[in-house]
Design a protein around this nucleic acid. Sequence first.
DNA 1: ATGCCGTATGATATACGA
Length: 263
Amino acid sequence: MRIATWNINSVRLRLNLVRRFLRKYQPDLLCLQETKTEDHLFPVKALAKAGYPHQAIHGQKSYNGVAIISRIPFTQRRIRYWCGLDDCRHISVELDNGAEIHDLYVPSGGDEPDPDINSKFAHKLQLLGEVTDWFASRGNEDLRAVLVGDLNIAPLENDVWSHKQLLKVVSHTPVETDRLNRLRDSLDWTDAVRHFVPADEKIYSWWSYRAQDWAKSDRGRRLDHVWVTPALKNSLRAFYIPKETRGWKQPSDHVPVVVDLEF
DNA sequence: ATGCCGTATGATATACGA
C-alpha cells in the first residue's frame, strides 16, 4: 500500500500536476491539503477518470480544505472539528482492513510566535492540543492508524535549513516542536520519514515561493509528515519525497511525501 | 531572516500562507 500526502495549494489550479504525480508515483491513496475549493467544485470526475474514484472531500471557499482520493475503497468517512470551528482541517477514512487514515492540516500560525498577541499562533497550539487529547483518548495498542498531512512544524534540527536561524520563526520554535512531540507521544506514533532517514541528514518538503531560486538556495523545511501507530511500524517499507515536483511549472510550494507500507 | 511570491475573491486591494 502506497500512501501520499501533498499540500497542493489549490487543487483546481494544479489538477494537471496532481494527475502527473498520480501517473508517475501510483499511490493507492493521496491525501491533499489546502484544496481551497468547495466540495461541489472539487474535480471529482477528473480524478475518478485518473483512477481514483473513491473520494472523501471536505473543503470550503478560498481557505484550507482537505481531501482523500483513493483507488481502493474505504468503508467510513469521518470529519473532526477542532477549536469549535468547521474550517476543513481534518478528514479520515477507514480501509477494508480496518486501518484508519487521518488527513490533517494544522494552521500555519502567523508571524509572531506568541499566543498572547497572535491569535493564529494561539489557534495552532490549541488545535495541536485538541488533536493530541483526542488521539490519546482512543489509545489502544492494536490501533492501526496513519496520520498524514501538513503539520506546519519542522520538529528536528535537520528538518530546517538552519536550526539556529529558525528557532524564533514560526514552524520551528521550541513551543511548537514540544507540542508536536506531545502529539507524537499521544499514540507513540512513528515518524515514517525519520524511520528511514538519520537525524543528522537534512530533508525538507517545503520551499518558499519567495526565494529567487528555491533549489539553489535550498532553504527548505520539513512541514509535511506521515506517521504510523506502533501496530503498523513493522509494515514500513520505503519512502519517497519527489522533489522534482517543486520544479514543475506553476508548482505548489510543498512537495508530496510518499510512504510504502506492507499490510 | 527577510523576502515581495503565490493563492483566492462579487477582487483592480486585501487576507492568507510560513
